[in-house]
Design a protein around this nucleic acid. Structure first.
Length: 942
RNA sequence: GCCUCGGUGGUGAAAUUGGUAGACACAAGGGACUUAAAAUCCCUCGCCCUAACCAGCGUGCCGGUUCGACUCCGGCCCGAGGCACCA
C-alpha cells in the first residue's frame, strides 16, 4: 500500500466502491432489525454550510455505527424546497423560484456526495414536486371534512406601501425591510389546523419519549402550557348611551347588542390562574380588538385613536412583550362577581386578542405587569395575599388611594410617600407567590388551594364562572399569502361556499414558469385560479394562498419510507421503517418543527397511515457552528464584515489574539465576537474549500473532535490541520506495519489471535494491549452517549499507545541470537499491533469512513469492513496487578499509594496511614473516620 | 419581556454523573534533523511563590449542604437558542 496519505484518491475510490455496490441502498426486510436514522433535510439555499456538514456527519456516524452493529439502516436525504428565499432570489436575479431551487439542489447534492455520506439516494425527495405535495393536499381535504381545519381571521404584518404581507423576519424595527414603511397589523382570513385538539396528547406523550433531551421536552411542555385556573365573568354595566345600529363603514349587518359587547346581562369573560387573588382585582383590561373596546371607540374618538395606535408594530410575541405597556379607560364598568364593586374597563396594548378571552382581570398587588401598569396610571393597588410566613402576625392596615396595603413588622413591602399619596415603590416578588388570603372576607386565612376551590365554587353557584384548564398552545395558522409553496386545495363557489378539491382532481399544481415581483403571481393568473365548482359546476375560483412550509417538513420523514408511492400518501413500507429511530437536527427546531411533526404523526396515525404515537424515538439536537467575526465601522456607523479567510490575526507571546489586519490592504480591522456562521456576519467558512484541501475525512474528523454534538462548535483552521495531521499519522504508522511486520504473515489468520489467554504475550506488550482495551472500552461507552469527541480522543490514545513504547519492537534486538525467542517476540508484537490497528480502523470507520475503508482493505484483504463486526474490548486485557490510590486528609489530596489490586480494606487503610506525607498532615492525631472509595481514594478525617 | 440551555488553562475541550480538575488536541516556547525552509520527531506548558521542591490559590460571581462540590441547593452577572410568517 501507499506510504503517503492521499485523501483525494482514497475518497474517490471508496465512494466509487459504495456507489457501484449499492452498499447503502435500504431494502425492507422483516427478518432484520431496522434502524431509521434521519437528519433534518436542508433548505436548498445554494451551497452547503458548516451547520449542514456537522448535522449530516453526526447522522452518518450514527448510521454507519448501527450498520456495523448489524442493523438494516435507512439514511435518506431530500430537499425542504419551498420557502421565502427562493422568492427573494427570484426578485433579485430574475429567475423563476423553481429553476433556482432545482439548480441549488443539484449543486448541493454533489457536495453531500463528496462528504461520503451513507445515504440511499434512490429515496431522495423534494417537497416542491407535485408527487410530494399532492399528498398533503389530500390530507388537508380529509382533515377539512373532519373539522380539524377551519377558517378565521388573524393578524398579519401588513406593509402599507408595498401592499403585501410580510414575514416576521421581514419586519425590522417595526418597518418593512424593502419599503421602510411602518408595518401595521391587519386581519385577514386564514386556514387553521386544530392542533389544540391534540394539546393534551402532545403534552402527555412527552413522558413516553425517554430518548429526547430533557431540555427539548421542557420547552415543549412550557409551549403547550397547560394551566389550571378559573373562568371569571364580570357582568357589564349597561351603557349610558343607546346602541348604534351600524358597525363601521361598508358593513351591511347591524351589530347585535352582544356583538357590541354591552347588552343587559352580558358579562366580560376572563381566564385567570390566580382566582385566589380575585378579591384584589382593581380593574379589567381588554385587547384593542375586543368588542367592548370597539364599541366604546364608536362614541369616543380618544379610544378610537388608541385602538388605531395599537395596530402599529409587528405581530410577534417578543414585540408585544417588550413594547411599552399603554392603555386608557374606555368609560365602561364591570361588576366584581363576588363583592359587587364597580371596576373600570381599560383597553391595553399588552392584552392580546385571540389569546384566551382577549381580556384579563388585573390584580396589581400580585402581578408584576399589572403592578407596573397600575403605578403608571395611578390605579388602585389592593393587596389580598401575604406570604405564608406572616400567618398569625399582627398586620396593620395602611391606606393607599381607595385600597389598602399591609405591612408586617418585619417583612414589609417597600412603601413610600410621593406627593400626598402613599406609593408602593418597588415590586416585591414575594407578593406574586402563593400565600394566604387577607382582607378577602370569607376567604381570609385560606391558602392558595383552599381559596382557589372556595372562590371557584362560589362563582359557579352564582353562574359567574367555573374552574377550567387552559392551554397556551394556539391553533396553527397554515395560510401564507405567497407563491412558492403548496397551493391550498380549496375552491370558492358563490353558492356552495368553500369546497375542498376532490381527490381525483389532486394535485392542484403550482405553475412553475412565472416571474416574481411584489406579491404572489398566482393572484395575477386568472387562467390558473378560474375554475368550476366541483359540487355544482358553476364558475368558481381557487384559493391563491399556499401552505406554511412547516407543513411539508411535518411529514417528510414518513414519505422517505415510500417516496415513489403514487396511489397513497404512505404504504405498508412505512409500517416497517417508522418510527424514526434517531433524528438529528439543530436545537433551533426544538419547539415549532418538532411539535408540528409530532402533531402530523398523530393526524396520520388517525388516518391509519403511521404506526405508533410518536415519530421520533431518539432525538439529538446539535449545536451551532460559530466563528470569529472581523469588521470595520464606517463613519456613518455602518458595519462592514470581513471573512476570516481574508484577515491576518497577530497574537502575543501567550498566543492571545491582540490585533488583526486585512490581507488586502494591511490595515487593522476590529475583532468582533464569536457568532453563528452567517452571511450577514460574513464569518462563514466554505466546507467545499476544506474538502478540496484536506478531504472529507478531515472535515468529518474535525467536526466530531472539536466539541460534543449538542454544544456549539467553534471553527478553527489550526484544529482542522491537527485533524489532518492525525489522519496522516494514522495512515503512515499503519502502512509501515502493513508493509513491514504484518507482511511477514501473508495469512492474516496467523496474526488474528482467537485465544489471548493461551497466547505467549510478552510482558512489554501486555501493558500496550491493556491501554488499547481500556481506551476501547471508554470509546464504546462514549459512542453509546453520542459523545464522539471523546471517541476520537480514545482513538488517538490507542494510536499513541501503539507508537509510544520504545521496547515494543526494539526488544527484538536483544534477542537476535535466540531465533525461537525472537520469533515468539515478533509474533507477540505483531499480533498486538495488528489487533490495535484493526480496532482503530473499525472504531474510526463511522467518523472517517474513507481512510478506514482503505486501511481495512490492506489489513484484512477480502473482507469488507462493514462485515467485520464492531470491536468489543477484551475484559481480561483490562486486569492490573497493582493500582494507584489517592490519599486525602480532610478531603485534600496529600499523597498517592500503590497497593495490590487484591488488597482489602484494612490493608489499604494501613498502607495509607503509614505513608510519610500523610503522617505529616495527620500530625499524630487519631483518625476520626476513614472513607474508602474502592479503586479511587482513601480519605482520612482527623 | 417570557421559556430553555450554557459559562472549566492562551484556545477547543475531558472528568463514566458527589471522589486525583485540565484526559485528548490546538496554539505558544525550547530542542533534534536540514545549507535553509516546509514536513516530521522529542521536551515544557493552570495561576502564584521558588534556583528547585514543598506549600498556597484555582471550574463566571456570592453564599450554603457534605469527610469531600465543575457536579447538589439558594441568590446574582454574562452569553446563546426559541417566542407561533426565516428555515
Amino acid at each position: 500500500m501507499e506510504d503517503i496519505y492521499q485523501p483525494q484518491q482514497i475518497e474517490k475510490e471508496a465512494q466509487q466502491a459504495w456507489s457501484d455496490g449499492q452498499v447503502f441502498k435500504a431494502v425492507e426486510n422483516s427478518t432484520r432489525e431496522k434502524f431509521y436514522c434521519l437528519s433534518m433535510f436542508p433548505y436548498p439555499s445554494g451551497r452547503l454550510h458548516m451547520g449542514h456538514v456537522r448535522n449530516y456527519t453526526i447522522g452518518d456516524v450514527i448510521s454507519r455505527f448501527q450498520r456495523m452493529k448489524g442493523k438494516n439502516v435507512l439514511q435518506p436525504m431530500g430537499w425542504d424546497a419551498f420557502g421565502l428565499p427562493a422568492e427573494n432570489a427570484a426578485m433579485q436575479n430574475n429567475v423563476a423560484p423553481a429553476a433556482w431551487t432545482y439548480a441549488n439542489a443539484d449543486y448541493m447534492r454533489n457536495q453531500l456526495k463528496a462528504l461520503g455520506l451513507a445515504i440511499d439516494w434512490d429515496r431522495e425527495l423534494a417537497t416542491c414536486r407535485p408527487d410530494y405535495y399532492r399528498w398533503e393536499q389530500w390530507l388537508f381535504t380529509r382533515l377539512f371534512k373532519k373539522g380539524l381545519i377551519y377558517k378565521k381571521t388573524a393578524p398579519v404584518n401588513w406593509d402599507p406601501v408595498d401592499n403585501t404581507v410580510l414575514a416576521n423576519e421581514q419586519v425590522i424595527d417595526g418597518r418593512g425591510w424593502r419599503s421602510g414603511a411602518l408595518v401595521e397589523k391587519r386581519d385577514i382570513p386564514m386556514y387553521f389546523m386544530r392542533i389544540t385538539a391534540y394539546a393534551e396528547e402532545l403534552l402527555s406523550e412527552l413522558d413516553n419519549l425517554p430518548g429526547w433531551p430533557e431540555q427539548v421536552k421542557t420547552m415543549q411542555r412550557n409551549w403547550i402550557g397547560k394551566s389550571y385556573g378559573c373562568e371569571v365573568h364580570f357582568p357589564i354595566e349597561p351603557s349610558p348611551l343607546a346602541p348604534l345600529p351600524m358597525a363601521g363603514e361598508g358593513s351591511q349587518k347591524p351589530l347585535s347588542p352582544r356583538e357590541r359587547g354591552w347588552g343587559e346581562g352580558d358579562a366580560l369573560k376572563v381566564y385567570t390562574t390566580r382566582p385566589d387573588t380575585l378579591m384584589g382585582a382593581t380593574y379589567v383590561a381588554v385587547a384593542a380588538e375586543h368588542p367592548l373596546a370597539l364599541a366604546a371607540a364608536l362614541d369616543n374618538p380618544e379610544v378610537a385613536a388608541f385602538i388605531e395606535e395599537c395596530k402599529q408594530g409587528g405581530t410577534s410575541e417578543a414585540d408585544m412583550a417588550t413594547m411599552e405597556k399603554k392603555g386608557m379607560p374606555i368609560g365602561r364598568f364591570v361588576i366584581h362577581p363576588l363583592n359587587g364593586e364597580k371596576l373600570p374597563v381599560w383597553v391595553a396594548n399588552y392584552v392580546l386578542w385571540g389569546y384566551g378571552e382577549g381580556a384579563v382581570m388585573a390584580v396589581p398587588a400580585h402581578d408584576e405587569r399589572d403592578f407596573a401598569f397600575a403605578n403608571k396610571y395611578r390605579l388602585p393597588i389592593k393587596p389580598v395575599i401575604v406570604p405564608e410566613s406572616w400567618r398569625g402576625k399582627e398586620i396593620s392596615a395602611m391606606t393607599f388611594s381607595e385600597s389598602v396595603a399591609y405591612e408586617s413588622p418585619d417583612e414589609a413591602p417597600t412603601l413610600g410617600v410621593e406627593g400626598e399619596s402613599l406609593v408602593w415603590l418597588e415590586w416585591d416578588e414575594r407578593f406574586a407567590e402563593h400565600g394566604i388570603c387577607v382582607k378577602s372576607g370569607d376567604y381570609d386565612g385560606k391558602d392558595f388551594q383552599e381559596a382557589f376551590d372556595a372562590i371557584s365554587a362560589d362563582l359557579q353557584e352564582k353562574g359567574l364562572g367555573q374552574k377550567r384548564t387552559q392551554f397556551r398552545l394556539r391553533d396553527w395558522g397554515i395560510s401564507r399569502q405567497r407563491y412558492w409553496g403548496c397551493p391550498v386545495p380549496i375552491i370558492y363557489c358563490p353558492t356552495c361556499g368553500d369546497v375542498p378539491v376532490p381527490e381525483d382532481q389532486l394535485p392542484v399544481v403550482l405553475p412553475e414558469d412565472v416571474t416574481i415581483d411584489i406579491g404572489s403571481p398566482l393572484k395575477k393568473m386568472p387562467h390558473w385560479y378560474q375554475t368550476t365548482c366541483p359540487e355544482c359546476g358553476a364558475a368558481a375560483e381557487r384559493e391563491t394562498d399556499t401552505f406554511d412550509t412547516f407543513v411539508e417538513s411535518s411529514w417528510y420523514y414518513a414519505r422517505y419510507a415510500c417516496p415513489d408511492s403514487s396511489t397513497s400518501m404512505l404504504d405498508n413500507r412505512a409500517q416497517y421503517w417508522l418510527p424514526v429511530d434517531q433524528y438529528i437536527g439543530g436545537i433551533e427546531h426544538a419547539i415549532l418543527h418538532l411539535l408540528y411533526a409530532r402533531f402530523f404523526h398523530k393526524l396520520m396515525r388517525d388516518e391509519g397511515l403511521t404506526p405508533g404515537n410518536e415519530p421520533f424515538i431518539n432525538l439529538l439536537t446539535q449545536g451551532m457552528v460559530v466563528a470569529p467575526t472581523f469588521l470595520r465601522e464606517s463613519s456613518d456607523g455602518k458595519k462592514h464584515y470581513f471573512n476570516p479567510a481574508d484577515v491576518d490575526v497577530s497574537t502575543d507571546d501567550r498566543g492571545r489574539p491582540v490585533g488583526a489586519t486585512l490581507k488586502a490592504d494591511g490595515q487593522p480591522v476590529i475583532i468582533g465576537g464569536t457568532e453563528k456562521m452567517s452571511k450577514s456576519k460574513n464569518n462563514g467558512v466554505d466546507p467545499q474549500s476544506l474538502i478540496d484541501l484536506y478531504g472529507a475525512d478531515t472535515a468529518r474528523l474535525f467536526m466530531m473532535f472539536a466539541a460534543p454534538p449538542d454544544q456549539s462548535l467553534e471553527w478553527s483552521d489550526t484544529g482542522v490541520e491537527g485533524a489532518f495531521r492525525f489522519l496522516k499519522r494514522l495512515w503512515g504508522r499503519a502502512s509501515t506495519h502493513i508493509n513491514g511486520a504484518f507482511a511477514h504473515y501473508p495469512n492474516r489468520k496467523d496474526l488474528h489471535v482467537q485465544d489471548w489467554a493461551n497466547f505467549p504475550l510478552e510482558d512489554s506488550h501486555r501493558e500496550v494491549r491493556r491501554i488499547i482495551h481500556v481506551s476501547l472500552k471508554q470509546a464504546n461507552f462514549d459512542f453509546a452517549k453520542h459523545q464522539f469527541n471523546t471517541v476520537v480522543s480514545g482513538a488517538m490514545k490507542i494510536l499513541n499507545a501503539l507508537n509510544d513504547d520504545k521496547s515494543f519492537w526494539d526488544g527484538a534486538v536483544m534477542l537476535k541470537d535466540q531465533p525461537e525467542r525472537l520469533a515468539s517476540f515478533q509474533l507477540s508484537a505483531a499480533a498486538v499491533a495488528f489487533e490495535g490497528y484493526s480496532i482503530l480502523a473499525r472504531l474510526l470507520y463511522p467518523i472517517a469512513p474513507h481512510i478506514c475503508h482503505a486501511l481495512w482493505q490492506n489489513l484484512v484483504p477480502g473482507i469488507d469492513i462493514l462485515e467485520a463486526g464492531w470491536p468489543v474490548e477484551d475484559e481480561s486485557a483490562l486486569a492490573q496487578d497493582s493500582i494507584e490510590l489517592v490519599v486525602q486528609v480532610n478531603g485534600k489530596l496529600r499523597s498517592k499509594i500503590t497497593v495490590p489490586a487484591s488488597a482489602g480494606k484494612d490493608a489499604i487503610e494501613a498502607t495509607a496511614l503509614q505513608d510519610e506525607t500523610v503522617g505529616k498532615f495527620i500530625e499524630g492525631k487519631n483518625p476520626k473516620k476513614i472513607i474508602l472509595v474502592p479503586g479511587k481514594l482513601v480519605n482520612i478525617v482527623v
